[in-house]
Each structure stands twice: as C-alpha cells, then as structure tokens.
Write a protein that binds this DNA or RNA. Structure first.
Lengths: 164, 164
DNA sequence: ACCTGAACACCGTTCAAGT
DNA sequence: ACCTGAACACCGTTCAAGT
C-alpha cells in the first residue's frame, strides 16, 4: 500500500481512539498501516511532527461554524468547542496539550484574543486572557461538565472585571 | 555503595537540574549512582513511584512558613510558592504536572480549598476554585512574572465575585 | 515517490543469584 | 537489605537499497 500524509493522520486518530496515546508509537502505527516504521519518516520529519498534524486535524474536526456574538458568549462557545473536539478522541487532550506545549495549535488562542480585543481589551489583557482561557480548557478537559462550566464562569467573570 | 530512598531522590533532583526530565531514565540515574538500573527497583515499585517521590520532595523544599492572612493573600502566596518551588529545578514543572495528572501532590490544592472555605466559600466553589488555581499555576510556570501575576489576578478577581 | 531491511543506541521491567 | 547480570520486549531514528 502507498499512503499520503492525510491517510496516516486518519489512521493515527483511529489508533488513538482504539488504544490511547501511550500505545501510539511509530512502530505500532506503521504496523496498523501494514508498513515498516521507517516508511513514516518519508511523510513526517519525526514523531513530534506527526503528532502535531494529528492535533491540528482533531481540532479542525471539532470546530463548528461560529456566529459572531457578544465577546463573553463567543469565548464561552470557543472553549466548549475546544473541549468537545478533544473529548471526541481518546487521549485527545493529552495529545493537544503536548503539541500546544511544543508551540503548535495557536489558532484558537488567537481567535480568543481577537474576541477580547473586539470586546475592548488592551493587547496585554487580550493576550494573557486568551492564554489563561486556553490553558484552563486544556487542564479541565476531563472534569465533569458542571465543574467545567463553573470554573469557566470564574475565569470569565474575572475577565469581566477588567474588560471595559 | 548502598543507598536509601532519600539518597536516590536527592540524586534524581541533581540529575534533573543537570540534564532535564527527558534525560532522567532509570538507567541514567542508576549510572550516576554507580549502580545497575535494576537496583532502583529495590527502592521503588516503578519509575512513576520514583518520580512521585521526587515531585513531593521538590514541593516540600519549595514550601516556606506561611502566616495566616486574608484568604486572597494566602492563595496568592501559595501560588507563588508553588511556582517558585517548581522553577528552582530544571523541568520541575513538567515533573510535578506529570505526577499531578497521575493523581499525586494533592496537598497544595487541599490547602487552597481550606483557605477558600475559611474565606466563606461553599464546598463546590472551594473545590473547583482550588483546582482552577492549582492548574493555573502548573500551566503558567514558564510565563514571565508580570504575566503570571496578571493572570493570577484575573482568576482571583473571578473568585472574589463568588466568595461572600 | 514511497517503501524495505537492517542496524544503532536507547528504554522500563523482571528475576534468579550473589553479599 | 541491597545489589548484579542477564534477559525480555520494547522505543525513535537513520540510511542504503529497492520499485
């Protein structure tokens, strides 16, 4: 069989759902594709690059069409969308967090910073607020939904005391 | 040489400072102690147990005597202490986060929940607020101090809108 | 363009045996 | 009580060679 990058990413997401992140090695993924591990290096520089592509695809699939609403509602919706996207796959949060920590998946954070600026926040507040929200989501993915909503409300209320 | 658990934990912290978490394998640590890797399994069940002991020791060393103060100041101090403890060692944050995610190092979170309850928060708010703060600290360890203080102020202000 | 085969330099963990 | 020696079943990555 001959594959393209997208085929490998698709299969990696399947493997993630089936066996989890700890079991997603270059060798096991290659075996699922009935190929040697070394073949994957034709498509990706290394494992980190492969995981980054997988994280991007997971978040892309989780994204819904977003209407322009009041900044707080938009931020809340973005956070819920992110959480849902990650929860749709086994170890999705662990994977996205690893890639985020390595400098990837910056788009959601920029989207939230834009929303804050549209709401009247200055550059520093928009930047720090967006990062705080993004990290809140990453670290609370596995809380139950009530706790997540309560914690998110706390952070948004804190932002509300500082956005005009 | 014959060692005790504490000797191994001390050497692991030295190795962490010198070479980082990624380089801290059972084999490299054993080599620094001039011992085989298998000897470490006499002292710890597995690598996760060893890392948990290292994380506890890092946080214990980072803890300063805390006076009883107003709940917000106490929370702020606790967060700064945690951050300082982790920043004192290379990959300290990555290590403590890994252990926290595995269910370890619950004491700081309990301390913050107590502070919130003393401040008048209900059980749910104390629990979620403490977790939100703990995770804020874990995920902002490497921000510069101004950004950390600003973000922490946001979360504390949010709590302030809910604690009587 | 995409893949194989073989190798290199590692891992965590187990366990009988030594002192 | 603490450690060795040897093994088992893995890793990520490289690279010449094949089609």
């Amino acid at each position: 069989m001959r594959y393209r990058r997208a085929d490998i990413v698709d299969r990696a997401i399947d493997a993630l759902d089936a066996h989890g992140l700890a079991a997603l090695s270059m060798r096991t993924l290659a075996a699922e594709l009935d190929v040697r591990a070394s073949a994957l290096y034709h498509h990706f520089d290394n494992k980190a690059a492969l995981l980054a592509a997988v994280a991007d695809e997971i978040l892309r699939r989780g994204r819904r069409a977003t209407e322009i609403v009041a900044w707080e509602a938009e931020l809340r919706l973005t956070c819920v969308e992110l959480r849902d996207g990650m929860r749709a796959h086994r170890d999705g949060a662990a994977l996205v967090t690893a890639v985020y920590d390595a400098g990837g998946v910056r788009e959601p954070q920029e989207r939230m910073a834009d929303a804050l600026r549209r709401g009247g926040a200055g550059d520093d507040l928009a930047r720090v607020g967006a990062r705080t929200l993004l990290r809140f989501v990453l670290s609370h993915v596995h809380d139950d939904s009530a706790d997540f909503a309560l914690g998110l409300g706390i952070v948004l209320a804190g932002l509300g005391t500082r956005v005009p």
